[in-house]
Simulated assay, not measured.
Amino acid sequence: MLTMDDIIRDGHPTLRMAAAEVSMPPSNEDKQILSSLLEYVINSQDPEIAQKYGLRPGIGLAAPQINVSKRMIAVHCTDDKGQLISYALFNPKIISHSVEKAYLQTGEGCLSVDESIPGFVPRYARVTVKGTSLTGEEIKIRLKGLPAICFQHEIDHLNGIMFYDHIDKKDPLKPIEGASAIER
Score class of each variant (00 low, 15 high):
V113P: 05
K130Q: 12
D79G: 08
L89F: 13
T3Y: 02
D156G: 03
K144N: 15
D114I: 12
V113I: 15
S44W: 03
S35V: 02
K70Y: 06
A62T: 00
Y124H: 14
G119L: 06
Q152G: 08
M72G: 09
S96L: 08
E154Y: 06
F163L: 06
V127K: 08
P47Q: 12
Q45E: 07
L38M: 08
I8C: 03
P64E: 01
A179I: 10
N91G: 08
L158N: 05
N28L: 14
G11A: 05
K52H: 14
K174D: 05
K52T: 10
R56V: 10
V41Q: 00
S44G: 11
S69L: 07
A74M: 02
I85G: 00
L173T: 04
N159M: 12
E154F: 08
G107E: 05
G58E: 01
E154W: 01
V127E: 02
E48H: 10
D79M: 09
I73C: 07
P172I: 10
G131I: 03
I42P: 05
I161M: 00
L37E: 00
Q83F: 07
L84P: 00
Y87H: 15
K169Y: 09
P47G: 09
K52Y: 09
E137H: 15
F151Y: 09
R184C: 13
E177M: 12
T106A: 15
E48F: 10
A181H: 10
Q65M: 08
P147A: 08
H153D: 05
C150I: 01
S98M: 06
K31M: 11
Y87G: 06
N43M: 07
D156E: 02
E137G: 12
K93W: 07
A63M: 13
